[in-house]
């Protein structure tokens, strides 16, 4: 799990049917205390994330989003968080030239694409209470690092091979260093590895543009939620969207299948560890 001589410990919280992992660097002296703090944190994280699920889940008939989409309530009736997330969705729709789109064709809205990272962002303040120098907060493709650089060497994050449907560990086609001055703090990956159809081109775009052949996209930048929306948009819209990312302070890596091999396309300053 670790590189170099760093010692890390972590805790995993399962919520929204996904595993959220907090990993922190520690030393022998503080190991037990830090593990205790992590275990305490886990309870709060689980509770916070459960609340987000109850408000936003499209699987729950009684969530605010479901009720909103059935026309039973208005946005102004819902917790303020709902308006906040819907505003973010609109912002990212503008930024990505329409390729990130939370509106559903039947007039409803499904902000699921950014709800997870928005939730991670919302609970981030709790991580500061751990009293550790540095750490990493991750869930599947989405990672945020906080604090200093552990033991002088940045976090190294692999980019999964999209042909191998697994996360957490496994072969990667590239890696990036995160944390510390001049390095990205957030990374999001979206793709088709798990389900060939989970991202689609917005209907309005469907007829007028070349369909995307990108099977997985990773985006680094200062804001995890923004990276998440852009990674989704690049899978939907392809290279043309990836090229817009630097305008908003992000760099992107798009992977495309070419025969049996994988071809990477990256923006000029994508921070690959491998040239």
């Amino acid at each position: 799990m670790t590189s170099s001589d760093r010692s890390t410990i972590g805790v995993t919280v399962t919520a929204m049917a996904m595993d959220f992992t907090v990993t922190v660097a520690t030393d022998a002296h503080h190991r037990d205390a830090t593990q205790g703090a992590l275990d305490t944190l886990a309870g709060y994280l689980a509770s916070d994330l459960e609340w987000v699920d109850a408000v936003f889940s499209t699987y729950r008939e009684d969530s605010w989003i479901s009720r909103l989409n059935r026309g039973e309530v208005r946005v102004s009736d819902a917790p303020a968080a709902v308006a906040e997330v819907l505003d973010l969705c609109e912002r990212f729709r503008d930024e990505t030239d329409g390729w990130f789109d939370a509106r559903t064709p039947d007039g409803g809205v499904d902000p699921t694409g950014i709800v997870k990272t928005w939730a991670m962002d919302r609970v981030r303040w709790r991580l500061a209470l751990l009293g550790v120098e540095c750490g990493m907060f991750a869930c599947a493709g989405d990672i945020e690092v906080f604090g200093a650089v552990p033991a002088g060497s940045p976090w190294r994050i692999g980019i999964a091979d999209p042909r191998v449907p697994s996360t957490g560990k496994g072969a990667s086609v590239d890696s990036v260093s995160m944390g510390g001055r001049g390095r990205p703090r957030a990374l999001a990956t979206s793709g088709l590895a798990h389900d060939a159809n989970h991202i689609w081109a917005p209907v309005a775009k469907g007829n007028s543009r070349t369909p995307s052949t990108v099977m997985q996209a990773s985006v680094v930048g200062p804001d995890l939620v923004q990276c998440d929306a852009w990674a989704t948009a690049i899978v939907a819209g392809g290279d043309q969207v990836a090229r817009l990312a630097p305008r908003f302070g992000m760099q992107a890596l798009a992977l495309r299948r070419s025969g049996g091999r994988v071809k990477s396309l990256s923006t000029p300053h994508w921070p690959s560890d491998h040239g």
């Binding site: 493709g141 999209p162 989970h198 396309l265």
Partner: peptide, 23 residues
């Protein structure tokens, strides 16, 4: 965009970022 072919390798990393998925 810079294009190149990439091969899967077993690099020593702290975490692997794989595709997350939406509803």
């Amino acid at each position: 965009l810079a294009e190149r072919f990439v091969e899967a390798q077993d690099w020593d990393v702290d975490y692997v970022s794989g595709a997350s998925f939406t509803s």
